[in-house]
């Protein structure tokens, strides 16, 4: 705790600068989440402070706005990422084992990179009237020198559409995911 309070004193700001440098490596989505929420929270706190001179009330209103905005941004991220999953599942749906198709996603809201690659079906899984496929897909970098990344996932038919079907990791393996 003593080390943390150091930050509040003059020399500590240098260390915040070091931490800020790492932001660039931290993925933009979390910065978006925290940045938007924090800005809204600060704006909320500012508004509250104009009405009340009670610091505790100010902080309370600021934190409330922070939580609401954070939930909104997460919803948005989930929707945008769901579009990418749907696009890969849609491309994989009609494929037989060993067939390859391209996939490409363009986002209406540019909070994720527009990505594309290829997808193929490695295995069909039929369980009663449920139909699923194990897929291997590539995410091709804009700079070919960086090499393609490959991933595996499951898609299942849901009515007329094919949907992403990989379940979440075991809670024991969430680690820093949460």
């Amino acid at each position: 705790m003593a080390a943390i309070t150091e930050v509040g004193r003059g020399s500590g700001w240098l260390r915040i600068g070091v931490a800020a440098g790492l932001l660039g490596l931290g993925g933009c989505s979390s910065v978006l989440t925290e940045g938007s929420s924090a800005t809204a929270g600060i704006a909320g706190a500012g508004l509250a402070n104009a009405i009340t001179k009670n610091g505790a009330v100010t902080a309370g209103i600021g934190l409330g706005v922070l939580a609401a905005t954070s939930a909104g941004v997460k919803y948005l991220e989930k929707r945008v990422h769901g579009a990418e999953q749907d696009e890969i599942a849609r491309a994989a749906g009609p494929l037989g084992e060993g067939e390859v198709a391209p996939w490409q996603v363009r986002h209406d809201i540019p909070i994720e990179e527009e990505e594309g690659g290829q997808v193929t079906v490695a295995r069909s899984i039929v369980a009663g009237d449920l139909s699923c496929k194990e897929i291997v897909f590539s995410v091709d970098p804009s700079d070919p020198a960086r090499g393609r990344a490959f991933y595996t996932a499951f898609v299942c038919r849901d009515g007329a559409r094919w949907k992403w079907a990989s379940a979440e990791p075991a809670t024991e393996r969430w680690g820093s995911l949460q």
């Binding site: 991220e77 769901g82 999953q85 595996t152 949907k163």
Partner: peptide, 17 residues
């Protein structure tokens, strides 16, 4: 060789996000 398991379906994100 790299870990290749892709992310869960967004419908299963729940408390992960």
């Amino acid at each position: 060789w790299k870990w290749a398991q892709a992310e869960p379906a967004t419908a299963r994100w729940g408390f992960l996000q």
